[in-house]
Design a protein around this nucleic acid. Structure first.
Lengths: 177, 177
DNA sequence: CAATTATTGTACTAAATGGTACAAAATTAG
DNA sequence: CTAATTTTGTACCATTTAGTACAATAATTG
């Protein structure tokens, strides 16, 4: 997972993958199928064990608490020690050659799914009176996602946890509460 | 440029590059040097002719006008017809294998340079009284960049100009003015 | 222990990668 | 028109890519 996270799908060679896993090539193919299948399983693992802060965030009682947890959770994951900086769903295959188009689309779909969770949560907030009834829930979700993705780029460029937290503080200031 | 923009540095093959340029391989090498040199020249061209909205933005008289122009300019570039969606400086080499590490660092440096321009502009705004004297100019610049980069990810995933403009409107609401 | 099954290591394949040698062709200069 | 020079096309190189055949080894089972 970390090799894909750090190098992206295309930049991760079978040699580096097998070396990092401590197994040889036939074992990898027997256990995980081809490179694309392995990547998909990696993404699933990443979603369950690392990107789970999104699912947790939408459980918060107010939208302010939701985005607070979302953004700080992202800052935490994207600058975590022992893992590459940034977000696998963002840098795994943002731009790629024709061969990796399918995984590229797959990651886009995963990101859209996260945004859809936010839309649903914000929609609920409207019915609860937490957001004004004329709130553009889709736009709010895209904005929340935008800040999150932007932090992923900063992190990939080497930004620290503290720097990302500073971004979150500013973004929170403007959030309707 | 568009091939690199769409496929990223690693995902752009010499075959696709030469085909798009309408020349053959020896001509490309004679005119531009190797692939990495060509990419650098492409990035220079991109900075001058496409990412110039950043330089223009910092010329605006107030920080609010600066970020307004920055973000709308980004939304415009990242969803322009005839060009790939997104930003070359973001998706050109966000994560890569060891061979493209130098290019990757180069793009990070280019992004940092843009952020530095914002810091300098916000610093000036403090002296002019446009921003409060205790404003964290570096954090503001990172936030502004974060929104911009986030829009690049949304655009790379297919977001429309209107959707990005919606993000900008929300981001502007929270900007200190 | 013996026999079967699963796992692993070596060595390979075909295709694609970035990069180049060299000669034919087109252009320019005299 | 001829001669020198630049540009182009073809064909190649070494390396790396993802993926696999097959035999040796290890583990499991009766």
């Amino acid at each position: 997972m970390r090799v894909f996270w750090r190098n992206g799908y295309e930049g991760a060679s079978l040699a580096e993958l097998t070396s990092a896993m401590g197994i040889n090539r036939p074992s990898l193919y027997a256990a995980f199928g081809d490179k694309e299948t392995l990547f998909r399983k990696v993404v699933d693992h990443y979603n369950e064990r690392h990107a789970c802060y999104v699912k947790e965030a939408v459980l918060e009682p107010t939208t302010r608490r939701v985005v607070e947890r979302l953004w700080h959770g992202g800052a935490n994951l994207m600058t975590g020690r022992g893992n590459p900086h940034g977000c696998l769903l963002v840098q795994g295959a943002l731009a790629s050659g024709e061969a990796a188009r399918t995984v590229q689309r797959d990651l886009t779909a995963h990101r859209s799914q996260g945004e859809a969770m936010l839309v649903a949560r914000f929609h609920r907030a409207v019915t609860e009176g937490d957001l004004p009834s004329d709130a553009d829930t889709a736009a709010l979700a895209r904005y929340a996602a935008s800040v999150l993705y932007g932090m992923a780029i900063l992190a990939a460029g080497g930004a620290s946890r503290e720097e990302l937290d500073g971004v979150v503080d500013l973004a929170l200031r403007s959030w309707p509460s």
